[in-house]
Simulated assay, not measured.
Amino acid sequence: MRLGLGGIAALGVLPLIGAQRAMTADGPETFVYVSNAGTKDIYVLGMNRDTGELTMVEKAPVPGAEKTSLVSLPMALAPNKRFLYAQLRSEPYPVSTFSIDHTNGKLTHLDATPLVDQMAYINVDKTGKYLLGASYAGAKVAVYPIDARYLVKDKATQIIDTKPKAHCVSIDASNKHAYVPVLGADYVMQFKFDASTGMLTPNDPPTVATKAGAGPRHFIIHPNGKWGYLITETTATIGTYSIDEDKGTLTEVAFVDTGDYNQKDSAFASDIHITPNGNFLYGAVRTTSMLHGYKIDPEKGTLTGIGKWPTEKTPRGFNIDPRGKFLLAVGMDSASLTVHAIDQNSGELKSVKPYPMGKQPNWVEIVDRIHD
């Protein structure tokens, strides 16, 4: 059941989320989507671009499975930002397609398609015609076609077995190469991607190794397409890689250490993002509930630490708004989201305000309003 503003206010949620100050005359210009694994829903929030203030719009249920979504509910946006995909990590592992109403940010559920396995990470290629997923529990990478209605088809284009704990699928700007960190194998798989067929083929070499026991988790690509960045879950390090423009292959440049690994237990580093202007990179570590910030060298792509800041308890996911002004982090164990302001000169973070979320919030997507 969806709740309108009146229903949410009746539950006492709206005053905690903010007031109408986040709204313009025509409504918010930016919308935030937070998935909650424990309550199988997506919070839709309006965002004030100047202050970062959030206003509740609705809670959209994610249907298709009786049980909760284990420890995460991954989401992915279509390239045109008009559709949102979300997968429940409980049988039958349905991925839902939602259309985004850009007048008010609300979601309309269109369809749910069972996938071959639960995915730790989903992504959509640059054409919007294929959904790619990495299965941590199932040790596989899968590619599914997306039809003209933006619905995920029920028959996979390709299913590839991997070593244990495939954790992410990242696609480069050319839409010709894909990268899959495999935590259990301590390497990143490199693929060529054919957008005309949706097929992945191993690149040469097919993998790039990290240090033994590092636990590669998430990989992202710099806006200039020249560098990629890998965060390792176990040791909480972040690596810079150069990307061959033609071949799409990775070459390790340098790693930085967050210092959050105690050499005994996993640091459980989680997520990594770059500001849209390419100046700053941030990584999250769950055991310490810290965000680590780095300045990116514009010539080499290497990282220089600028600070670390406390955030929500057990920050599994975060994201940065399209203007690079705010970082929004959610805490799995705090059931809350904190808006952090990003200093545009230094990259330092300043906590602005926390907001209550559902149970086990873990994924954040941010979309600017489209004016047709």
Rank of each mutant, 00 (worst) to 15 (best):
S334Q: 11
D321C: 03
F318T: 12
G317Y: 09
T314S: 06
A329P: 01
S336Q: 12
P315H: 13
S334R: 13
S346L: 04
V339H: 04
N345F: 00
D343I: 07
G331W: 07
V339C: 08
L328E: 07
A341P: 05
M332G: 10
I320G: 07
I342E: 05
Q344K: 09
N345M: 05
I342P: 04
R316H: 11
T338E: 12
G324S: 06
G331A: 10
Q344L: 05
D333A: 04
R323K: 10
L328H: 12
A329K: 01
F318M: 13
I320S: 04
I342H: 06
S336T: 15
G331N: 04
K325F: 03
F318R: 08
P322V: 07
D333R: 07
I342K: 10
D321N: 09
M332Y: 14
P315K: 15
T314M: 04
N319D: 14
G331H: 11
I320K: 10
K313Q: 08
F318N: 00
T314F: 15
K325W: 00
T338L: 13
G324I: 03
S336L: 05
A341K: 15
A335V: 00
N319W: 12
S334C: 11
N345V: 03
L327S: 15
G331E: 04
R323N: 09
K313E: 07
I342F: 11
P315S: 14
D321M: 05
F326R: 01
I320R: 07
A341I: 02
F318K: 09
K313T: 13
S346E: 10
F318H: 11
G331Q: 01
P315Y: 13
I320N: 02
S334Y: 08
G324W: 00
N345T: 15
A335P: 02
P322S: 07
F318P: 03
R316F: 11
G324M: 05
Q344G: 01
M332D: 13
K325E: 01
N345Q: 13
L327T: 13
T338N: 12
T338V: 15
V330W: 09
D333Q: 12
G324N: 04
N319R: 05
G317F: 12
G347S: 11
A341Q: 14
I320W: 10
D333Y: 06
A329Y: 00
I320C: 03
I342N: 02
P322F: 02
D343L: 06
T314W: 13
Q344T: 05
